[in-house]
Amino acid sequence: MHAELLTLALRPFIDPLPLQRHWWLLIVPVCLLVSIAYKAVRVSDFRTYWKQVFSMTAQLIIAIVGVCIAAFLLVQFIIPRIMPIA
């Protein structure tokens, strides 16, 4: 690529955001937006809507982090014990 192209401004919605190192932070807005849309059609009483949205967001984040930890332990510790690499 020409070096000059690198200095051209980012065009939002056309070019990707430079999030190659911090992509994992997107878990928060993704879970929040999923909860907002899902709870909007599930709750019957909107007085508890935001409480349920933040509760679901927290549950999603905790579940994803839990799955991440479980996968890490499986790959790094459990599988090497079952099938040691010679």
Binding site: P12, F13, L19, P29, L33, A37, Y38, V41
Partner: peptide, 25 residues
């Protein structure tokens, strides 16, 4: 209207958020 607005925020936020993150690609 309230349910409609929240649905639109959630769905369009995810849709355009995805385009913002990854570009139109």
């Amino acid at each position: 209207p309230r349910r409609a607005a929240l649905v639109a925020i959630g769905v369009l936020g995810l849709f355009f958020g995805g385009i913002l993150v990854g570009g139109i690609d």
